[in-house]
Design a protein around this nucleic acid. Structure first.
Length: 277
DNA sequence: CTTTCGTCCTGACTGC
DNA sequence: TGCAGTCAGGACGAAA
């Protein structure tokens, strides 16, 4: 569900409430999500100070005193909900709740595809889910030459290639569709077939759409599962050009096309067959 | 090696 | 109203 802009928004939302605070209690309501929680997680975390929060790809990293870092992934349906400690709330699927003196932070995830793990801070980069990730799309490490290199020799469709977190980290189904639309590249194109010009346009489109989405607080689609940590909805969904808009007119004013939906690698792709080539 | 496919799980929506 | 079927923002492991 959440992609890079949503994860970034959530991380920024919880950082002020956690950074510098001490964890006074950790409630574990369920043994594990995608991976089992470290044994006795609750006890090991109590008394730790939160040093800093950051994001890598779709992972939120919460660095703690004691040389360990909480690695958190929201999966498809994960949500972090911040509440005041003197007005606690509980909802179904609150799997883990972190408490500071002032606030509680619930990790809620109905589908349980999310991940919460505790890793040695110095080894976070080598932690298997993070180890093979490609460049951060908003960093200077991601440019047209790097993308071209990652796509070289790939026969898979460009849509599928961009979902591969080893190529570029943090994109998901929504923003891949949106970036391809902005770059006017058809999702069915073989990854290695893009011209230098197209690769350049695609790199710029990825950066632009992610930046705009972060500014809007992410996208909250119709099921409204994604929320900011304070409960507010993102509003970038109103600006999506193609995602979930099959049948609608292409938003390019000079284009007479209609948005189509196809399935690639088991995932929906939305695009304009007229102006994306 | 690369690429596709099924699977993990719940909830929301569609159509009969 | 009920119920079966479909689909979902992700990621992994097995299989080809």
């Amino acid at each position: 569900m959440p992609e890079l802009p949503e994860v970034e928004t959530v991380m920024r939302g919880i950082a002020p409430a956690l950074a510098g605070q001490t964890l006074v209690k950790v409630a574990v309501n369920r043994a594990g999500l995608r991976a089992p929680f470290p044994k006795a997680l609750a006890k090991r975390l109590t008394g730790r100070r939160v040093l800093a929060l950051s994001r890598r790809a779709k992972y939120i990293l919460i660095a703690l005193s004691g040389g360990e870092t909480l690695v958190l992934h929201l999966g498809m349906s994960g949500r972090l909900r911040l509440f005041a400690a003197d007005a606690p709330t509980a909802e179904p699927h609150d799997h883990v709740v972190l408490y500071t003196a002032k606030t509680g932070l619930a990790f809620n995830d109905p589908r349980r595809f999310g991940l919460l793990d505790l890793v040695a801070t110095e080894a976070v980069g080598a932690y298997p889910p993070l180890a093979g990730l490609g460049p951060e799309p908003l960093s200077e490490a991601f440019d047209a030459a790097v993308l071209a290199g990652a796509l070289a020799g790939k026969r898979t469709p460009i849509k599928t290639a961009l979902l591969d977190q080893r190529v570029v980290a943090g994109l998901g189904n929504i923003y891949v569709c949106e970036a391809l639309f902005r770059a006017r590249v058809a999702p069915t194109r073989a990854a290695a077939s893009l011209s230098g010009r197209e690769t350049k346009a695609l790199t710029a489109a990825v950066k632009a759409v992610l930046t705009a989405a972060i500014a809007a607080g992410g996208s909250s689609l119709s099921d409204a599962r994604y929320r900011r940590a304070d409960g507010a909805l993102g509003y970038f969904q109103t600006k999506l050009a193609v995602y979930d808009r099959q049948g609608e007119a292409c938003p390019r004013k000079t284009c007479a096309g209609r948005i189509e939906r196809i399935v690639q690698a088991g995932r929906s792709s939305f695009f304009c067959p007229v102006c994306q080539h």
